[in-house]
Nucleic acid binder design. Sequence first.
DNA 1: GGTATTATTGCAATTGAGTTGCAATAAGTC
DNA 2: GACTTATTGCAACTCAATTGCAATAATACC
Lengths: 133, 133
Amino acid sequence: MILIKEKLSSQGYRMTKPRQAIFANLDHEPQSVAEISDRLKKQKIKIDKVTIYRTLTQFVKLGIVEETQFKDKISVYELADQEHHHHVICDNCGKIEDICLDEKILVAAAKKNSSFKIKSHHLEFFGLCKKCC
Amino acid sequence: MILIKEKLSSQGYRMTKPRQAIFANLDHEPQSVAEISDRLKKQKIKIDKVTIYRTLTQFVKLGIVEETQFKDKISVYELADQEHHHHVICDNCGKIEDICLDEKILVAAAKKNSSFKIKSHHLEFFGLCKKCC
DNA sequence: GGTATTATTGCAATTGAGTTGCAATAAGTC
DNA sequence: GACTTATTGCAACTCAATTGCAATAATACC
């Protein structure tokens, strides 16, 4: 088990059954709210999607979950307890894979070339997966 | 004037007043449909936002316009007749600036590290602009 | 130039992700 | 176990974006 209960209670939040179930269904693969909702339904766990939204938003704030948006504009969520990495998304079937890249040089260049105080970045690749090639 | 009329007619499309007005209000700065709509209203040009959406979608297909999505999930559009570049977005006020970066090495690394046939990528930076620092 | 053909427009209605208000419920506390 | 208050679920709502369709306007043809 991970430190999630402590993370919650240290901020005055409570560990509830819905939060436990949602956490148990999170993954290192990014998932949409609809996908998480479907997984829960299959397990006959009844949780309103509003609760899923609120829980995920809270998990993001607590650093438990990472949120990303892709082209189709829906948010996807994945466990944050992993190394910083990026995604490759198939233009045809939507399949998402992780990819590890060292973008330090690029971020350094961006900091140099911009008047902004750069804090974070998004980097995603698009193309065709093996099946769709 | 640019080759837009030819691009349209070569595909069997027509150059219309709304398309002309929308094109005239495009920029090298990314703008949302709402922003384009406001600009047109100020010029007392009455164009339904449905038409703006359809026109922009078509312009994207013709390679006249580039579409991007940012964190807040709304689409922004800018003229595509420019060098490949990236955006820096202010976390506080939403200001967007362009930034030029050479990401060739990174894209090459991604191609090497992935089983996907990589075709394109999105790269954006977030932080604070001078005013919001 | 005038007319026929058909792409395009504008309106109204719809979709779908995500949010909000609020009463009912359930954690954690004493 | 009773109390306090965070949390849940429902219904209603927001807002970007899409769709169907009748009315309109741009090109082609005479």
